[in-house]
Nucleic acid binder design. Sequence first.
RNA 1: GGUGGGGUGGCCGAGUGGUUGAAGGCGCCGGUCUUGAAAACCGGUAACGGGCUUGUCUCGUUCGCGGGUUCGAAUCCCGCCCCCACCGCCA
Length: 468
Amino acid sequence: MIDLKQLRDDPQRFKRGARDKGIDVDIDRLVKLDEQRRRLLTEQESKRAEQKKLSKQIGPEIATAMGQLSDADPSERKKLEAAIELLQKQPTTLKTEIQGLDRKITKIERDWRSLWLEVPQPPDPDVPKGDSPKDNVEIRRWHPPGFDPNQPFVKNKGFQPKSHLELLSDLKLADFERGVKMAGARHYVLRGDGMRLHQAVLRLGFDCITDEHGFVAMSLPALVREECMVGTGFFPAGRDQAYHIEESKRGAGHDLFLIGTGEVSLMALHADEIIDADALPLKYATVSTCFRREAGAAGKDTAGLFRVHQFDKVEQVVICRADEAESRQWHRTMIEIIETLLQRLELPYRLVQCCTGDLGPKNADMIDIECWMPGRGPLDDIGRPIGAFGETHSASRLYDYQCRRLNMRYRDQASGGKTVFCHSLNNTVIASPRILIPILELYQNENGSVTVPQVLRPYMNGQERIGS
RNA sequence: GGUGGGGUGGCCGAGUGGUUGAAGGCGCCGGUCUUGAAAACCGGUAACGGGCUUGUCUCGUUCGCGGGUUCGAAUCCCGCCCCCACCGCCA
């Protein structure tokens, strides 16, 4: 969430930010509600101060009078009772006024808070303007010596490629029919070497981020409370995308939600904490199952493993000091880790700078990494896809937007021990089975078999080939 | 699922209606003493929000959370959340 002080100082900046992101939020109304709230609060507080002063003065007087009451004779008793009654009446007008203001404030705060949560983080000035992924800007690309995605697959390899769907089916690596039978559209079954490859790739990513880069390995809840979803910035905007477990309907105190990414649990871990500044930056990684409803994606990428309701992902997050240069440096570092990983897997990829319209509410900046998938893209004259880049990773830079929502702070020695909201970043390490698409399609052989990438063989008991 | 106990500051812990933001202790910071350190002693030590005269200023909120009773609530009442113990079930 954004800093309200900044909003008061420069509402135009936040209006521009929301417009550039294509998010509709009534910022004028928020400013007005904020003003109203503060006005009422000031009024109420001064009345409360008055009441407090009064009761501190009256209180002991009542107490003494009460004490005298017990051993007073009848005539004195009457006098004392009258005196007590008079004293007790004094703050009553103040009390009703305070209660009235309380009701007004509560009413305003409901709208004020929900509107506040909807205001997106303005994109950084260096993010290209645009309203759809079409306006994203390619930064750089890389491909292994053996494969140039600027040339068709046939030119590179000398034979027509199968799509990952064909390979999965021919090699019996996946079973979509039974996945759908059990759970409906966008569900799947991985079997045999399909499942083994899936596990291998996750393990490669996990070992890379933890052993080689020192991120602390975590296993976390995949089922979380609403606060975690709101805190990480996925709610309210992305409420439709999450599976909702309505435990309250069964008598429990709260509902639960299935996480759509390990980022949620990794970030919510330290919610409401003041972190020891010496412990920063926190570098965490997890491998988790992710659940997405894919609402609004009907008809998009319906076949195969590209867009599914459930997948597994190794995720990395960094929580660092509130310093823009440090944030930016970590963003670069986290992306470099992935580039190295993809280069080891010898998958052609490109880096794409997401435009303002593709950022989502929480990000100041986001870089997508897309791998080359020969089975995607428009069809050629003989009805075969010509190949296209498809998103496999996404690296976000959020400044303090997420930590402010999560109330994650550290004590800043530089500013005299004041508490400051941390910065946060996150990036995919590897998400599977989506990453199996480029692996299968690029490592396929003319006879229909698939070569196991060198780096994955240690995780496949040395197996070199899938199919014969 | 059943029964019982409990949630107080960075931590432990006292507090059952009246200057209690909260005793005491630990920790931490500063000082005295010391060649230095320790010990001892002295002092300090919350977060959040509002206001403006932006200050070693001021006001408010906060004793799990929400509501209620009261002139006044950490303390009484109601609802909720969480934790612990034992029993049952269980990967």
